[in-house]
């Protein structure tokens, strides 16, 4: 039995729902943040994810980061050596989708390993009449940049755990591959 640990950066523009998704996931869907409260520093929340059929698990240290630029100097220092990355935008907010390129560059610049498992999350799908970002467009962008795409509604408790489970699985497979490499060296 093995227990992995991964530092998971959660980033994206302000008010897209990062803290909401993190709280919801870490409380197993029981805690939806209805009222907006701006994140001003990195809030670390630990959540254990079981890897199905293995007896292995991963402790995800979710680094819920502020979206507001004024806090970025302080917080980005703490992104050092990330294990995986959850990039969030709001499907009703075109600008938050455009910012994704910037967020991805910033986080990727913090890693010294060749691989960084990453997901793109389009949140707030419940607001379908205000939708501004096309699902296909987001999906294509994600594929082009090597991310797995998910759509979520934290409000309707829809898919909120999938992005994190996907990251946990990718991280786990990366570990297994690396161990095989270590074996083949001797």
């Amino acid at each position: 039995m093995g227990k992995l640990t991964a530092k998971c950066i959660v980033a994206g523009d302000s008010s897209v729902g990062k803290s909401t998704l993190v709280q919801l996931f870490s409380s197993n869907g029981s805690h939806f943040l209805k009222n907006y409260s701006m994140t001003t520093g990195i809030d670390v929340v630990m959540k254990t994810v079981q890897i199905p059929d293995t007896g292995d698990s991963i402790e995800l240290f979710l680094c819920d980061s502020p979206g507001k630029a004024v806090f970025s100097d302080m917080t980005e220092m703490q992104w050092d050596q990330p294990g995986c990355f959850c990039l969030v935008f709001d499907v009703t907010n075109e600008a938050s989708f455009s910012s994704c390129t910037k967020w991805l560059q910033k986080v990727r610049s913090k890693t010294s390993s060749a691989q960084l498992p990453a997901v793109l999350v389009g949140n707030k799908t419940d607001l379908s009449d205000r939708r501004a970002v096309d699902k296909l467009e987001a999906q294509e962008w994600a594929v082009r940049h090597g991310l797995v795409y998910f759509e979520t509604s934290a409000k309707d408790l829809e898919n909120y755990e999938l992005p994190f489970q996907s990251l946990a699985k990718s991280f786990y497979h990366m570990y297994q591959e690396r161990v095989e490499n270590f074996k083949s060296l001797v």
Partner: peptide, 22 residues
């Protein structure tokens, strides 16, 4: 458990300890 730190000291060059993240 498959790659414990004891492997560092077991005198066997084929076994190893792995870190598991962070």
């Amino acid at each position: 458990e498959r790659h414990p730190a004891e492997h560092i000291m077991d005198g066997n060059p084929e076994t190893f300890w792995t870190t598991t993240g962070m």
